[in-house]
Structure formats: C-alpha cells, structure tokens
C-alpha cells in the first residue's frame, strides 16, 4: 500500500517544531498539500487549519496547489542573472512553447527562483528539484530532452 498522510504524520512526534517538516514532507511525497491533508495535519498537531494553510502557503518549497508534471525553475539572482539567465529563460520558453509564469500549461511551468547557493557553478536551473549547473543556452535542449 502506498504512503498515506497518516503514515507520514506518524513519523513525526506531534510537537510544534515538527509542523513545518511534516508539511514539507507531505508536499514532497504528494506533490502538494491539499485541503483534506491540511485538515489532517492540523488535527495531528492540535492547531487550526488556518495556521497550517498560512504556513504552507508561505514557503517556496511547499505547494498548496496541484503542480504540472514538470516545474522548471531558473535562478535569476545576481550571479546567475549576470551570467545568461535571461537568455536561458528565453531558450526554455522557445523549446517548451510556454511563457515565463504561465500557470495554465498542462505539462510545464517555468518560473524564476531565488539563489540556491551554487553561485560558483551557475547559471543554475532546477527541474522538479533536480539541479543543473553551468547551464548554457546551447545545453538547454539536452537538459530538457528527457522531459519533452
């Protein structure tokens, strides 16, 4: 039987400092935290559903909405922005036929992301959490090939 919310919650003792880790884990496993799961998390930690949703919706690495199968995130913080990030974004838009920030595409989402601490190895691109370093305009196609 696959992992359920209850099983994941039981990995954490119901203390306040486990709220964020639990939400994070559930978001990771299920792709996002939906309303029903929010209720279960709230009950488990004896806090309000309001607090769980407030917290879950705040952080970048937690999703409260269903995501398309492939989320492409391009770092646009200083070092990467100076490097070629804009051109890389344009190339990705070209190859995937989507626009930056478009939320309606059924398969892809392309967004900018904040620095992930690999400034020496930029430009950096993440696809569903997998990190690609030293990306160039010419290496974009190869990077995206497996997802097309």
């Amino acid at each position: 039987m696959s992992l359920t919310v209850e099983k994941i919650l039981l990995e954490f003792s119901p203390r306040a400092e486990n709220i964020l880790p639990a939400i994070r884990q559930i978001s990771l496993v299920f792709g996002y935290v939906d309303e029903e799961k929010t209720g279960k998390i709230a009950d488990y930690f004896s806090v309000t559903k309001t607090q769980i949703y407030e917290t879950a919706s705040f952080y970048d690495n937690i999703n409260t909405e269903k995501q398309p199968p492939f989320v492409v995130r391009v770092c646009f913080s200083t070092h990467c922005a100076l490097s070629d990030a804009k051109k890389i974004i344009a190339e990705i838009e070209n190859i995937l036929h989507i626009k930056l920030g478009d939320v309606n595409h059924p398969k892809f989402k392309l967004e900018m992301m904040s620095c992930v601490g690999r400034c020496g190895e930029g430009p950096v691109v993440m696809v569903n959490g997998k990190v690609y370093e030293r990306v160039t305009v010419s290496s974009v196609y190869e990077m995206l090939e497996e997802y097309l």
Binding site: T48, T50, Q51, Y53, E54, S57, F58
Partner: peptide
C-alpha cells in the same frame, strides 16, 4: 474561531 489567515507571501 480563527477563520482568517495571512496566506501566501
């Protein structure tokens, strides 16, 4: 009854 939250960022 804590109906309202400060959501997103």
């Amino acid at each position: 009854v804590s109906s309202y939250g400060f959501n997103h960022r």
